[in-house]
Design a protein around this nucleic acid. Structure first.
Length: 582
RNA sequence: GCGCCCGUAGCUCAGUUGGAUAGAGUGUCGGCCUCCGAAGCCGAAGGUCAGAGGUUCGAAUCCUCUCGGGCGCGCCA
C-alpha cells in the first residue's frame, strides 16, 4: 500500500527534477509516512519541506507543484497541502477493503517482501562458551537473534544462523579440570575444589557419568597436585593454571581429552536441546577447534605476516590494529606460542567471507563492544571491507527475585538458567518479553513478577485475540453458518469506525516488517501486534460478527480471518505460537 | 582518565531514522457480561522527554557541555 504511494511520489519528483534541476539520489527516495492523526489523511510526506531550500522554492509552492505532477491513482481519493508544507494523502475506503483480500490471498506470506534479495547474510548469536547451561542473559540473545533472522528472511535475505562454539582455550580447560576434581572426589580422594573452578551441579553430573563409563581408569597420583594447593599465598588464577597443568600431566594428553570431551559434549548437548525447546535452531554450530584443525588460523597469521601487519615485541606477535582505527595494537600469538582468542576471531570472520556471505551480522553482549573495532581492523587487514561486519549489542539482563538482585556468574554456579525461566513463565511469554524491549535497553527481569503476573503479559493479550477469533469460527461451524469466502463478500459493508481502525492496523503490517528488519528491531513487531490486537478487541467488543444479515456477516468474518492471519504471521516472526484455544 | 550504551508518566517501556496536540502497558479511580471467550471493552487522572546551550521552518530524535546509571579498556575467553 505504502509502496504504491512511494511510486506515485517518485514519478512526481522525477518531473520536478526535470523542471527545476537535478537532485541527489538520496533526495529522490520519497519519505512517506502514516499519519498519526486521521484528520491529516492516511499518509503524509514531508518531502516538499526537505527539498524546498535546495530548489529555492517555498515549501508550500513546491508541494503544490508535486501534487500537480502526481499521476492519477485509483487508490487516492484526495491530496492536500497542510501546515508548513506537508502533502497529505487520503485513500478511498476501498483501498483498505482491497488490502483484506490481499491478506487472505497471500496468507502466511503476507508481509514478506524481496527488499533484501541478493544479500547473503550470516547471523551469529548466543555463542556462549560451552562451560555451563545457558542463563537468562543468553535467552535474550537467543530470542533477539532468532527473531532478527526471521525478519531478515521475511524481507528476502538469504539467512544463515550460526552458533560459534568456543571449544578451545583456557575456560574449557578450567571446566575439564573442574570435572576431573569432582571425579577424584568421588573416588574418595581428599582434594580441595577451588573457588574459581566451575561450581555448578552439572559438573558433578558429568563427573558421575565419567565414573560410570570409565570407572577408575582416569585415577592418578595426586601428590604433586596437593603441593600446588598447599601454597596458600599464590595468586588463585595462577594456581588454577598450575592445577590444570598438573591434571594434564596426571592424565596424559589422551586422558585429559577424554575428560575434556565428556564435559564439552555434555554441556553442548544441554545447550542445543535447551535452545531447540526454545524454538531456536541455528543451521550450524561452528567449532573454534575446527579453525585450528583446518589450519585457518595459521593461514590467517601467514597472510597477515605477508602483508606486514604483524610485528614481534616482548616475545609475542602483535597485530597493527591501531593502523585500522583500533585504539591499540593487539596480541595474536602469546609469548608461550599459543594463539589468542582474537586470532581465532579474525580467522573465523574472514572464513565467513570466504564462505560467500556478503554481510556478517554478530549479535554480541554489551560487554563485547571493545571487540568491534579490533575485529573490523582484522577484517580490513585481511583485505575485506570493514562495513561487511555489523554488530548488534544486546544489553544486560538484570535478574531480580522480588527485590533481590541475583548474580549471574557461570563460574560461581549462582544463576538462573534459561531452562528454569522457560519452565516458570513458558516459552511464549519468555520470547515475547525478551523481544519487547529494544536490544540496546537494559532489561530488568523480575522472576516473581513474571511468574505471578504471567496472565498480564502482553503476549496473552495478543494470543487471546487469535484464540477469540478461532473460537468464533468454530462456533460458526457448530451453528452451520455458511461462509463463502472473502472473494464473494461485500467488504463495503465494513463502515464502522472500529472496523476502519482495524483495517488500517492490518494494512500497516508489511511496512512494520520491513522497518523492523531494516532497524534490526523485532520489538517493533511486538508493539505492532499489541496495537493490532487492541484494535481487534475494540472492534469485536463493539460489533457482533455473527449477525443475521448474511452480507454484513461475511464481510466481518473476512475481517476477522485477515486479523487472525496477520497476528499469526507476526507471532511466527517472534517465535511465539498462535493458539486457537487458551 | 579514555571509549561504547542509556536517562521519556509512580513503575516497566514504545516512539516509524528531524514532523503536526509525546504514546502504550501496569498501578490508582469510575463504569460495562441475559449477547460470538471479561485473559476483554469504555472513561478519568498522571509529563520541564535528566539539565543547559546550539543547529532550522520544526528537536524526545542531530551537535557540544554538565549531572546520573550500566558496561568495557589483559600476552583471559
Amino acid at each position: 500500500m505504502r509502496a504504491q504511494l512511494d511510486f506515485l511520489l517518485r514519478e512526481a519528483l522525477a518531473e520536478i527534477t526535470a523542471n527545476h534541476g537535478p537532485l541527489d539520489p538520496g533526495d529522490l527516495a520519497p519519505q512517506i509516512e502514516r499519519t498519526r492523526d486521521a484528520r491529516h489523511g492516511d499518509f503524509t510526506s514531508n518531502v516538499a519541506m526537505r527539498l524546498a531550500k535546495k530548489l529555492s522554492l517555498k515549501p508550500r509552492d513546491l508541494a503544490a507543484d508535486l501534487i500537480a505532477a502526481l499521476p492519477d491513482s485509483p487508490l487516492v481519493e484526495a491530496t492536500e497541502i497542510a501546515g508548513p508544507g506537508f502533502i497529505n494523502f487520503r485513500l478511498i475506503p476501498g483501498a483498505y477493503q482491497e488490502e483484506l483480500r490481499v491478506i487472505l490471498e497471500d496468507g502466511p506470506s503476507y508481509g514478506c517482501s524481496e527488499t533484501g534479495a541478493g544479500h547473503r547474510i550470516i547471523v551469529e548469536y548466543v555463542s556462549a562458551n560451552p562451560t555451563g547451561p545457558l542463563h537468562v542473559g543468553h535467552g535474550r540473545h537467543a530470542a533477539y537473534g532468532a527473531s532478527l533472522a526471521n525478519l531478515l528472511r521475511a524481507t528476502g535475505h538469504e539467512v544463515h544462523e550460526e552458533y560459534y562454539v568456543n571449544d578451545a582455550g583456557r575456560q574449557m580447560d578450567i571446566l575439564a579440570a573442574s570435572v576431573w576434581l569432582r571425579y577424584a572426589q568421588h573416588l574418595g580422594h581428599e582434594v580441595p575444589f577451588p573457588g574459581n573452578c566451575y561450581q555448578g551441579g552439572y559438573v558433578i553430573e558429568v563427573a558421575e557419568a565419567l565414573l560410570r563409563e570409565h570407572g577408575e581408569e582416569l585415577d592418578g597420583d595426586l601428590a604433586a597436585l596437593r603441593q600446588v594447593f598447599a601454597d596458600n599465598s599464590a595468586d588463585p588464577e595462577k594456581q588454577l593454571d598450575l592445577t590444570i597443568a598438573e591434571i594434564k600431566s596426571i592424565l596424559g594428553e589422551n586422558g585429559f581429552a577424554v575428560v575434556f570431551d565428556a564435559a564439552l559434549t555434555s554441556v553442548l548437548t544441554d545447550i542445543k536441546s535447551d535452545l531447540e525447546d526454545f524454538g531456536v535452531v541455528p543451521q550450524h554450530w561452528y567449532s573454534e577447534r575446527s579453525l585450528v584443525d583446518s589450519g585457518a588460523i595459521a593461514r590467517t597469521l601467514d597472510l597477515l605476516t605477508t602483508r606486514k601487519m604483524l610485528y614481534t615485541e616482548d616475545g609475542a606477535k602483535w597485530f597493527r590494529a591501531s593502523d585500522f582505527g583500533d585504539e591499540k595494537d593487539r596480541v595474536v600469538v602469546r609469548e608461550n606460542g599459543a594463539t589468542t582468542y582474537f586470532a581465532s576471531d579474525i580467522a573465523y570472520h574472514f572464513e565467513k567471507r570466504e564462505r560467500g556471505f556478503t554481510h556478517l551480522l554478530d549479535v554480541l553482549g554489551a560487554d563485547h563492544h571493545g571487540y568491534i573495532a579490533r575485529v573490523r581492523a582484522g577484517l580490513e587487514a585481511m583485505g575485506e571491507q570493514n562495513e561487511c561486519l555489523e554488530v548488534r549489542l544486546v544489553q544486560f539482563v538484570t535478574l531480580y527475585r522480588g527485590q533481590q538482585k541475583m548474580q549471574m556468574s557461570t563460574r560461581s554456579g549462582e544463576y538462573v538458567t534459561l531452562r528454569q525461566l522457560r519452565e516458570e513463565v513458558g516459552n511464549d511469554a519468555a520470547r515475547f518479553f525478551y523481544v519487547s524491549r529494544s536490544n540496546d535497553q537494559h532489561l530488568d527481569f523480575d522472576l516473581e513478577l513474571a511468574k505471578s503476573h504471567s496472565n498480564d503479559n502482553p503476549v496473552y493479550y495478543v494470543q487471546y485475540a487469535h484464540a477469540r477469533i478461532a473460537s468464533m469460527l468454530s462456533r460458526m461451524q457448530e451453528e452451520n453458518i455458511v461462509f463463502d469466502g472473502a472473494a464473494g463478500a461485500d467488504l463495503t459493508r465494513l463502515t464502522e469506525p472500529e472496523e476502519h481502525g482495524l483495517m488500517v492496523a492490518l494494512s500497516r503490517y508489511p511496512e512494520q516488517v520491513h522497518l523492523a528488519a531494516v532497524n534490526r528491531a523485532p520489538q517493533q513487531i511486538a508493539h505492532y501486534l499489541r496495537d493490532t490486537a487492541a484494535a481487534f478487541h475494540a472492534c469485536y467488543n463493539a460489533h457482533r460478527v455473527l449477525v443475521d444479515d448474511a452480507q454484513l456477516r461475511d464481510a466481518r468474518v473476512s475481517l476477522a480471518l485477515a486479523t487472525q492471519q496477520v497476528i499469526r504471521n507476526g507471532l511466527t516472526l517472534l517465535g511465539v505460537t498462535a493458539p486457537t484455544t487458551m
